[in-house]
């Protein structure tokens, strides 16, 4: 089964307590943030803390993907961050403020050099691009296709909306960017992540946004509070009816195959290959996340 990336939990990398307990919330991915969440004076400390935290076997054991958001490469910290986390064995490096494919190419060259220097298999460090500007959104397709290391692209709203001369509202302001990033990801066959919902006390507002992102087709969402993980996973979980129907689809497909039928039908309706594939995905997802609970 393909790696699920519904929830990507942001953690301030200077915070030892959060770093050492975050895995209990079981997000699909944990993103250690060396960028905005860390003050200039603590960049060195946070870098070391993340490097050592990545050595904990718990992440590998529990299947939680590790992501580190490094500082931009044109800051005094970016390359130092990269040197640390590639050597420390991070799964994915997230580049902030990606404006073009060249940004990823530059990152890729450094990653490859470091992999060679430290004896890590070349290509084993995956990348992720955060799109945070109008230019990035316009270049989304070329960014998404820029490297085989890329596992996904994420939209980040704050700087993008400043760039667009607007502010966070009902979602209208992000409509084009969401669609553009999502299309780029689908063209490149990588994952797409929706923005952070920052009001951690508004569960209803959060769920509205999750449902919108899910309907549009996002694989998941960036999160800043561990409490949001369960809500999100539940919203992404298939309903009992969906699972029931999917099981029937798969059964019918298997029987049809055995009988050597060219055309398979269920309750008089024809089911074709995409429907069967989707049914299998839903069953797999239900195995991981259970069926959706009513809230």
């Amino acid at each position: 089964m393909k790696k699920l990336r519904r929830s990507m939990l942001f953690l301030p990398a200077a915070n030892a307590a959060m770093l050492s307990t975050s895995f209990v919330y079981k997000p699909d991915s944990i993103m250690f943030d060396l960028e905005d969440a860390v003050s200039i004076k603590e960049k060195d400390a946070a870098r070391l803390l993340v490097a050592q935290t990545l050595q904990l076997p718990i992440y590998k054991e529990s299947g939680i993907e590790t992501v580190v958001r490094i500082n931009a490469l044109n800051t005094p910290f970016g390359l130092k961050d990269l040197e640390a986390v590639v050597r420390a064995g991070v799964d994915v490096v997230r580049l902030p403020m990606t404006n073009s494919a060249e940004d990823i190419h530059e990152l890729e060259q450094h990653v490859e050099r470091i992999e060679k220097e430290c004896g890590r298999p070349v290509g084993s460090t995956k990348l992720m691009a955060a799109i945070e500007s109008a230019l990035g959104v316009v270049n989304a397709v070329s960014i998404a296709k820029s490297s085989p290391r890329l596992i996904g692209i994420a939209l980040a709203a704050f700087d993008y909306l400043v760039d667009m001369q607007t502010e966070r509202g009902d979602g209208t302001e992000l409509f084009y960017a969401r669609c553009a990033v999502l299309h780029a990801a689908r063209v490149a066959k990588i994952d797409a992540f929706d923005v952070v919902y920052s009001n951690v006390n508004d569960d209803a507002g959060f769920l509205n946004e999750v449902n919108l992102a899910k309907k549009l087709g996002f694989n998941g969402k960036s999160l800043i509070n561990p409490r949001q993980i369960e809500l999100l996973h539940n919203a992404y979980a298939p309903t009992a009816e969906e699972v029931e129907y999917s099981k029937k689809v798969v059964e019918a497909a298997e029987e049809g195959e055995k009988a050597g039928l060219g055309v398979i039908s269920l309750n008089g309706k024809m089911i074709d290959a995409p429907i069967i594939a989707r049914a299998r995905t839903i069953i797999e997802l239900a195995a991981v996340s259970g069926v959706r609970k009513a809230i």
């Binding site: 030892a16 770093l19 050492s20 060195d44 400390a45 070391l48 803390l49 490097a51 050592q52 935290t53 050595q55 904990l56």
Partner: peptide, 17 residues
Amino acid sequence: GALDCAIKARVQCAVLR
């Protein structure tokens, strides 16, 4: 009550500084 990884990171940081 820090984990070993935090102890290691903090000692390294203080020493390097």
